[in-house]
């Protein structure tokens, strides 16, 4: 299995989260899995401008000159995507969300309603599974965890795939690796 760890920690002053992800990468590697980590805060990923150029002008390619190509290639290379970030204001970071917005070129503009609800058809035949990894804030409550899970599972549905896990860094990296790899 190839895992892509999308590190959406926007606060380099807090080393805990990055250290946790590093340890997770080591565990996965030791188990024989491929691991690619993208540190989103060091990448040049501009906000999606909402122009739909990636659907209607240069299909599959974002109009912005930034590192979206690296992100899309890494996404399509992986079997599992780990959407990782500390919770900020009760949800994944804005940095991680900015990167998620840049994934819409993997979809076609055309709408598929065969499941009884609208979503887009996929541009590629491959749809990696999604997992969410978060670090609690001091005031995190179950409601925040439930909302985070609910939003990302909707996003997984829209990306024609499934959310296989939504886990907190309070469990060990071995347990996280197991949950991701066995799903």
């Amino acid at each position: 299995m190839n895992a892509l760890l999308m590190n959406g920690n926007s606060n380099p002053a807090d080393p805990r989260f990055d250290a946790y992800l590093q340890s997770l990468a080591q565990v996965l590697t030791a188990q024989g899995h491929g691991v690619n980590t993208l540190e989103l805060r060091s990448m040049d990923l501009r906000q999606c401008s909402g122009c739909f150029g990636c659907w209607l002008k240069t299909p599959g390619v974002c109009a912005t000159q930034d590192q979206h190509g690296q992100l899309l290639r890494a996404y399509l290379d992986a079997d599992v995507i780990v959407l990782a970030s500390p919770l900020v204001l009760g949800f994944s970071s804005g940095l991680l969300k900015r990167a998620a917005d840049k994934l819409i070129p993997i979809l076609l503009p055309y709408i598929d309603a065969s499941s009884g609800e609208c979503r887009h058809f996929l541009r590629y035949s491959k749809a990696p599974r999604l997992a969410v990894l978060y670090q609690d804030e001091p005031d995190t409550v179950d409601e925040d965890r439930a909302i985070t899970r609910e939003i990302w599972s909707r996003m997984a549905r829209n990306a024609n795939t499934s959310l296989v896990a939504c886990l907190s860094t309070t469990i060990t990296t071995t347990e996280v690796a197991h949950a991701i790899a066995c799903a």
């Binding site: 926007s10 900020v88 804005g94 969300k97």
Partner: peptide, 17 residues
């Protein structure tokens, strides 16, 4: 804001933060 991948656009989340 517009719904972006089932949530707020990254722009909005970063602003709120």
């Amino acid at each position: 804001f517009p719904l972006y991948t089932d949530a707020m656009p990254g722009l909005v989340k970063e602003f709120l933060e």
